[in-house]
């Protein structure tokens, strides 16, 4: 648990807006992330969700796991639809057809829909300055269709379209740094979070919904199926990713960086990589390379944070 007492779970909102009975795999940390995000946002929320795991598992007709207005849209345009909702509701409130009320407009998508397919509409929505929140659930590949590589897949990961073998070490490019792309739009709030740190995640979502203007939250969601780990290890691997500085937790408020969690003891990247089936082909030399990249990236981030941490 992160910087709170073990009992702080009892202070969290009890209502569920993402109910049981959804069909996610056993131990899906992405479903957990959705549940926590919805807990933080509350019932006055409109969600548009791009195609992906979370859309498939939550809404097989005629059932739905959602207790808030929810719309499924195509892979690329969740942010465009939510910006339309926001503009429409604003106009209705101005004309007096709706009561003045604070409504959270949320677009959600996986890493495929955010980093690859929906990049343009997301950029447009952030640039137009709608009062909305974009949440990206990053499980580092297209898990829904059977683990194909996306541009958010990390270096060295074996997927079905970047298989490891004699001539290949799996994914050969670095992970696309989406939070930095969002920061480049000069929006009021950008944060990274992980479902293994639930209070940190919920705090960031609450902050993002309170801020007027576009906000972007990038959530690392461990996928036991695609990462080839045991379902009960899903939370532990999220924690390992953060403790090994592979996925540092930070927030950027009006251009000011702040680390929200610094590991008590930084773990070697090997600890994070070794149990995962998608990295098991890596040799010592390649792990060394990944370690060096992680250290470089973290040093760059620390510099932006003003050397704190």
């Amino acid at each position: 648990m992160d910087r709170f007492s073990v009992f702080s779970s009892r202070l969290v909102e009890k209502a569920e807006y993402f109910t049981s009975g959804h069909r996610a795999c056993q131990g899906c940390a992405e479903a957990l992330a959705v549940r926590l995000v919805m807990k933080a946002l509350g019932r006055d929320t409109i969600v548009a969700m791009a195609t992906g795991c979370m859309e498939i598992i939550s809404s097989p007709l005629p059932t739905t796991a959602w207790k808030v207005p929810w719309i499924h849209v195509a892979f690329e345009n969740s942010s465009a639809v939510v910006s339309g909702c926001e503009a429409g509701m604003k106009a209705m409130m101005r004309k007096g057809k709706l009561n003045q009320k604070k409504i959270n407009f949320v677009a959600m998508g996986g890493d495929g829909s955010t980093a690859d397919i929906g990049m343009g509409p997301l950029s447009g929505a952030l640039e137009r300055g709608h009062d909305m929140l974009y949440v990206c659930y990053d499980n580092e590949a297209y898990m829904n269709t059977g683990i194909q590589r996306s541009s958010a897949t990390p270096f060295g990961a074996s997927t079905t379209t970047s298989p490891a073998g004699k001539k290949s070490i799996g994914q050969q490019t670095q992970k696309k740094n989406l939070p930095q792309i969002a920061v480049a739009h000069d929006i009021p709030y950008v944060a990274t979070a992980c479902s293994s740190f639930p209070f940190d995640l919920m705090q960031k979502v609450k902050k993002a919904s309170a801020i007027s203007g576009p906000a972007y939250i990038h959530i690392l969601s461990v996928c036991p199926t695609g990462w080839r780990i045991q379902p009960h290890d899903a939370i532990r691997y999220g924690r390992l990713a953060v403790d090994a500085n592979v996925f540092p937790l930070y927030e950027v408020e009006n251009g000011e960086y702040r680390l929200t969690y610094t590991p008590y003891k930084v773990l070697p990247v090997r600890e994070y990589l070794k149990g995962q089936g998608r990295f098991r082909h890596l040799t010592d030399k390649e792990i060394e390379l990944i370690q060096k990249n992680v250290e470089n990236d973290y040093a760059k981030l620390l510099k932006k944070c003003g050397g704190q941490g």
Binding site: E16, H22, Q26, C28, P224, A234
Partner: peptide, 28 residues
Amino acid sequence: IFCPDACIIQAAQGHFEADLTYCKGCGI
């Protein structure tokens, strides 16, 4: 708080237990 299926419920005696109608048995 860590249950992805929101199937943990608090029993009358105060302890927490899984609702076996929805528990997928992930072991988290």
